[in-house]
């Protein structure tokens, strides 16, 4: 049984534009599954739908075999207790400093002990290299720093699965690596992750499985070697060829 099982997931925007067209994927415990594909292929939408931020039209999402009912608030809340998502635009709470961004949900929403959470948060921020920025506000941090705070914030919720939605796409090139390094540390710790990314070198290095998507469909699934060195479908060959050429 897979940890996360997505089966035939379909979603639309405004009820018209089909953005996910029967997507099926599986993620096992400790696996790192990366989703690649051109812009508009539905990668980010896939994560948003799994997270319950956009209601699916059809299909199933199962967590350890239990189906998630996206029409049911309780079911969605239970799912969100086990997942964390990091967004492309960081989305830090602008009215809170770095530490408060990390501690607010565990303390106010999960009702965990404030002091323990704070200690843990300081450790997490230290782990992503921001031990000296605890009391900086988002607008005082660089994009890379903000994104690392966002990662620490997601981890403070102790997720079983971490969803990373193009976390380096909004960063200046020289800041990309500091964020990728933070994710490498998580990978070493055995964190289960679903990564949507355009950083092909990174995807190749870190993924246990790579999924190529286009036009809302899964085109090809395979190991990083297969997808990048020996893609089976012509669409995937085309995409990988275009990317690796520069």
């Amino acid at each position: 049984m897979h940890h996360l099982e997505v089966d035939g997931l379909t979603a639309t925007y405004d009820g018209k534009i089909l953005v996910l067209d029967g997507v099926s994927i599986q993620v096992g415990k400790g696996e790192i599954v990366s989703v690649i594909g051109p812009s508009g292929s539905g990668k980010s939408t896939l994560l948003r739908v799994i997270m319950g931020l956009l209601k699916p039209k059809a299909g199933h999402v199962k967590l350890d075999g239990d189906e998630v009912d996206y029409g049911n608030k309780k079911s969605v809340k239970a799912l969100r207790d086990r997942f964390s998502i990091v967004f492309q635009q960081f989305n830090l709470f602008q009215n809170m400093d770095a530490l408060r961004n990390v501690t607010i949900a565990p303390v106010k929403i999960r009702k965990r002990d404030a002091q323990k959470v704070e200690k843990e948060a300081i450790e997490l921020l230290g782990k992503v290299g921001l031990g000296d920025k605890l009391h900086s506000y988002p607008d005082e941090l660089s994009g890379g720093q903000q994104q690392r705070v966002a990662i620490a914030r997601a981890l403070a919720l102790r997720p079983e699965i971490l969803l990373l939605d193009e976390v380096t796409s909004a960063l200046d090139p020289e800041l990309v690596n500091e964020v990728l390094d933070a994710i490498r540390i998580l990978a070493k710790d055995g964190m289960t992750m679903m990564i949507v990314s355009h950083e092909m070198g990174f995807v190749r290095e870190i993924s246990t499985e790579v999924i190529m998507m286009d036009e809302g469909k899964v085109i090809e699934v395979g190991s990083a070697e297969q997808i990048f060195d020996n893609p089976q479908t012509s669409r995937c060959q085309d995409f990988v060829g275009k990317i690796l050429r520069h």
């Binding site: 997270m51 319950g52 931020l53 809340k77 969100r80 207790d81 997942f83 964390s84 998502i85 967004f87 989305n91 709470f93 602008q94 949900a105 929403i109 999960r110 919720l157």
Partner: peptide, 9 residues
Amino acid sequence: QWDTADAMN
């Protein structure tokens, strides 16, 4: 900001 808070329950 709403989405983010939403995702954190």
